[in-house]
């Protein structure tokens, strides 16, 4: 996938690009509105990650340009200002998603994947990983073609892991993904452990290989190795 990262903070820009590149994506970088305008004139992107507060102007301008040209590049707004108005305006101008800083790179990766999938495989909402098969439309999971039943949280977790294959995902990121604003309620991360344990058991019981690896106490990895 071809992704454009528009972010004026160099460290963040590089980290996003590094993380996404490791997933096998191609990343272009832009530090300002000018650079970004130049880039979108030259290339089409599967997804544009757009910071709204850029040194030379409002990121929403870029969205207006894209809209005028009737482009269908997927757009995820990443901003420090989580105001409701801005969110509404951004989504109104055609943004597909809205991520408030700070965020976990695994979360960003999952959002990017969701958008790209929605845009490029219209009608084909299947995610495959060896014997695992997920239909995003109907939210069903099959192992070796046999459906298994998962709770909503287990399903969300599995999808999240699939979007970050072979990556270590911190418990912090998992908790934030599942409980959002109430992440601090799930003290000591025990909840995540329970949910993953249950998910693992269901998958293994259905004959799926155990792809989950625990990484010391800090996180989990979903990998074929």
């Amino acid at each position: 996938m071809k992704i454009l990262v528009v972010e004026d903070e160099q460290l963040l820009r590089d980290n996003i690009a590094d993380y996404l590149k490791a997933e096998g994506n191609v990343c272009d970088l832009a530090a300002s509105l000018d650079e970004a305008t130049e880039k979108i004139a030259l290339y089409d992107y599967d997804c544009i990650l757009l910071d709204l507060t850029l040194p030379d102007g409002d990121g929403l301008k870029l969205m207006r340009i894209l809209k005028k040209q009737d482009r269908d590049d997927g757009i995820i707004i990443i901003t420090a200002r989580g105001s409701v108005d801005q969110r509404i305006e951004g989504l109104g101008l055609g943004a597909d998603d809205y991520l408030i800083k700070p965020f976990h790179l695994s979360e960003l990766s999952a959002r990017v994947l969701a958008i790209v999938r929605r845009r490029s495989f219209k009608g084909n909402d299947l995610v495959r990983f060896n014997e695992l098969n997920i239909d995003i439309q109907s939210k069903t999971v099959k192992v070796h073609g046999e459906p298994i039943s998962l709770t909503r949280k287990e399903y969300d977790l599995l999808l999240y892991f699939m979007a970050n294959k072979s990556k270590v995902i911190s418990k912090s990121a998992l908790v934030a993904h599942i409980w959002g604003d109430h992440a601090d309620m799930a003290d000591s991360f025990d909840f995540i452990y329970t949910h993953i344990k249950n998910l693992r058991k269901k998958l293994v019981d259905a004959g799926c290989k155990d792809y989950f690896q625990s990484v010391y106490g800090v996180g989990y990895k979903f990998s074929a190795e």
Binding site: E9, L11, L12, N15, I16, D18, Y19, A22, A80, I100, K101, P102, F103, H104, L105, S106, K167, V168, I169, S170, A173, V215, Y216, V218, G219
Partner: peptide
């Protein structure tokens, strides 16, 4: 928020290190 985002993303990157 932006510096915190940088810290967060750096942590996410460190987590990927094979020599952890």
């Amino acid at each position: 928020m932006t510096p915190i985002a940088v810290i967060n993303s750096k942590l996410d990157m460190m987590l990927q290190s094979t020599e952890l």
